[in-house]
Amino acid sequence: MIRVTNLGLAIDGKTILHDISARIPPQGLTAVIGPNGAGKSSLLYCLSGLTRPTSGQVSIDGADITAARTTDRARMLALLPQVTPALPRLTVADLVAFGRWPHHRGRPNDTDRRIVAQAIRDLDLDDLLDRRLDTLSGGQRQRAFIAMNHAQSTPWMLLDEPLSALDPRYASDIMARLVELSRPGTGRAIVVVMHDLAMAVRHADWVICLKAGRLFRSGPPSETLTGAGLSALFDTPIHVEHLRGRPVVIID
C-alpha cells in the first residue's frame, strides 16, 4: 500500500500540492485524474521519490520513500516519465535490458536475461528487438518503455500520461496491457496519471482526483467517477451513463 500523509510540495515559493492524504491499494490500476495544472504529475513524482516533498510523507509498503536508497527505490518502483523529445538510438533489446540495471548494477546474469526475454514476449516486442527507438511509432515506443519497466520487476509501476499522443487504437492497446500487468496475482500495482476519462472509467480500480493542488476525492470508481463528482472536479457538466453494461463518459 502507498500511504500519503499531509503531503505538500512548493517549488520556488509556489504551492503545487497542498496537504494531500490518501492511500493507494497494492493491487490493480489506480488512475490519477484532474484538470490541467492540478498537480497530478507532481504527485506521481513525489510517490516515485524523485521529487522530495516540502512537507508530509510518502510511505510505500511501510517504507519512507524519501529515506530509501537509490537502488532500493528502483527495486520498489518503476517510473515511466512523459515522452521526451530527444530519444537515444538504442535498440528495443538494449532498452528493455536496462530495466534490470537496479538488480545487477552492470553485471547481468541468466536470471536477468530470462526476465528481459519474458518482458519482451509479454509486450509482443519480438519483431522489434533490433529496431531503434527513433524508428518506432508512438505506440511501439511506449510498449518498449513499458517492457523496460516490466523487466524492472517492481511491486509498483508509476506512469505519467502514457496515453498522451497515442491514437485510440494504441491508447486502448497500452491500457489493456497495463490492466494485464496489474492483474491480481501479478504482485504489481500500477498508478497512472491520465486525461482520458473514458479509459479511467473503463479500467481504473481506484481513483485519485486532484484539483488545484488538493485532494478532491479518492476511492473506488463507483464513488469517484460519477457524473456529479466529475462535473464538480472539472467544472464542466459531465455525465456517466451505461451503454451495453459498460460505463461511458459524456461531456456536454
Binding site: 524523485l50 540495471w101 537496479p102
Partner: peptide
C-alpha cells in the same frame, strides 16, 4: 559506458532506474 548510456535516457528515467 552503461551508466553514460543511461544518461541519454534523460534524468528522470536514469534516476528511476537507480542510477546515481
Amino acid at each position: 559506458a552503461d551508466r553514460i548510456t543511461m544518461l541519454s535516457l534523460g534524468e528522470d528515467r536514469a534516476r528511476s532506474l537507480g542510477l546515481d
